[in-house]
Each structure stands twice: as structure tokens, then as C-alpha cells.
């Protein structure tokens, strides 16, 4: 059972996530824990009704589901169907089911072109109040579509596009440095023409400050928040471990995880 006395949102949603994954006997825990604080700061704390938000790293769908549950769009009952036959909540978000999930995502590299198209659409509609947010993974920046979209965004001066990169340094089968090198490096994004900020991706205040700075920075440059994160953040035996991209948890590890999160996020 998850303790009910944890009111701190970072702790509360982590507990929900762990519980969800444990009951589903499912993997992708590590990558959900690395981006949950980014979702809290962007989707829950900063996104206005007129903005759009896309979770491009669809494998962290559960972190999106618990946030939409917190926002009241996905009911507790619905959430219990996660991973089960007949669910609207599969491992990667599906199409046309929830207002808060406007696109099916899970094949990496699709989100940034879509978000760039949305940012351009706002421009064509003379809509100056809307922001197009996208949360993507660092591994996802391997995809060529990322770089096709960035060049378009810069050329079209889409400063209403805010890209958040969950930079946990680990991708599907190795570390980002060992595979293609750092495709989510500050230098690469800056040289293409993005305004870049580096933040601690588990510090809600720092993330929010970064987003707010971007919202007010009307300089014609699209934005990227490179959020340095830890895969599996909050659970000692999962932190920075690639295997927690895939492994489901066991009863004893589940109990340990609940305990560690409860102790760490006790406020």
C-alpha cells in the first residue's frame, strides 16, 4: 500500500508511479522517474489551457498518466486499467483517447516535428499567447527528424516553442556518450540557433524559473531546456542503472522503493 501522508507532489506522484508499475508488472520505471519532475514543472505548474504539451518520450507514458490523473483528466479507476487488456492506457500513449494526450507517441523522433508544426500554426493564426511545449529524451536526439525540425524552428523564429530534454545520459542499450556521443549537448543546440538553459531536472523551482524565463524571452529564438536528470531518481537501487529502463519490480524491491521515496519526499 502506498502511504497517504506524503503530500509533496514529487513524492506523491513517484509513489503512484511505482505502485502503477508494480501492479502492472511492467518496465520503463527508470525513464518515468527521470522525467516526472519535468512534467510537474511544465505540464502541471506552467502549462496554460491555450498551450499545447506533447510527451515525445512515449515510453514514459505512466508519468504522463499520473500527472493527468492529478489534473483530474484520468480517473483513479481508469488508472488501475494501466497495461491491462481493454485499457485506454497502454505502455505508450495511444491516439484519440484523452484531451491531454493529443498524439500517439512512442516511436522516437516524432514529437519535435509535431510540436514545431503546432508552434508554426500558432504563428499563422496570429496567436501570440500560446506556447508549444515538448518533453523529449536525450536518446531521442539521435533521430534525424530532431535536426530537421530544429532547423525549421530556428529559420522560422519560433520562440513560442519550448523543448525540454530529459538528459539522463542513458539510452536503450548503453550510455549516450558511448553510442553516438552527446547529441543533446548544449553546444549543438546553441550553434543551430536555440536559446539554451541548463537546469537540474529534479529541482522544480529551477525548472520553473527556466520555463518562465523562456516564456518571456521574445527574441525570435526557439528554446531548449536541457534538464540534467538521473534515471530512476529517488530510488537508490535504480539510479543511473540502464536495466531499470526495462525491469519490472519485485515485492521486496517495491517495499524498499516505497520506503525510500516516503523518507526522501516526506514533506
Amino acid at each position: 500500500m502506498i502511504p497517504e501522508n506524503i503530500t509533496n507532489l514529487q513524492g506523491k506522484l513517484r509513489l503512484k508511479l511505482i505502485d502503477l508499475y508494480y501492479r502492472a508488472n511492467a518496465g520503463h520505471i527508470g525513464c518515468s522517474l527521470s522525467c516526472i519532475d519535468l512534467l510537474i514543472a511544465s505540464l502541471i505548474n506552467n502549462k496554460k489551457p491555450q498551450d499545447s504539451f506533447i510527451l515525445s518520450k512515449g515510453h514514459a507514458a505512466a508519468s504522463l498518466y499520473v500527472c493527468l490523473n492529478h489534473l483530474g483528466e484520468i480517473s483513479d479507476d481508469e488508472l488501475t486499467t494501466f497495461y491491462k487488456n481493454g485499457t485506454k492506457l497502454p505502455a505508450h500513449p495511444s491516439a484519440n483517447k484523452f484531451f491531454g494526450i493529443p498524439f500517439a507517441l512512442g516511436s522516437l523522433g516524432h514529437g519535435l516535428p509535431i510540436s514545431t508544426g503546432i508552434a508554426k500554426a500558432y504563428r499563422l493564426q496570429q496567436n501570440k499567447d500560446s506556447i508549444s511545449y515538448i518533453l523529449m529524451s536525450d536518446g531521442e536526439t539521435n533521430e534525424g527528424t530532431t535536426w530537421e525540425a530544429t532547423h525549421f524552428a530556428v529559420k522560422h523564429q519560433l520562440d513560442n516553442l519550448i523543448v525540454i530534454i530529459d538528459k539522463n545520459g542513458l539510452q536503450g542499450f548503453g550510455s549516450i556518450d558511448d553510442i553516438l556521443g552527446d547529441t543533446a549537448s548544449e553546444e549543438k543546440w546553441r550553434i543551430i540557433g536555440f536559446e539554451v538553459l541548463n537546469v537540474d531536472g529534479h529541482n522544480i523551482e529551477e525548472i520553473s524559473n527556466g520555463i518562465n524565463h523562456f516564456i518571456n524571452s521574445k527574441n525570435g529564438k526557439p528554446k531548449v531546456l536541457i534538464a540534467n536528470t538521473v534515471k530512476g531518481k529517488g530510488i537508490s537501487f535504480m539510479e543511473n542503472k540502464m536495466e531499470w529502463h526495462y525491469l519490472p519490480t519485485t515485492e521486496s524491491l517495491y517495499q524498499q522503493a516505497i520506503e525510500e521515496i516516503s523518507n526522501f519526499y516526506h514533506a
Partner: peptide, 26 residues
Amino acid sequence: KDRFINTGVAEQNMIGMAAGMASKGF
């Protein structure tokens, strides 16, 4: 005018962007 866009030699991005634009009413 600005509704005619040469998106460059980048077809995958063109389709993704088109989906984003269509989702906003175009």
C-alpha cells in the same frame, strides 16, 4: 504568402509538422 512553405529537403519533418498544423485547424 506565408501559408506556402518550402520545408526543405526534410520529408519526415514536413509530415510531422503538417500533423501538428492540422491538429490546430488547418
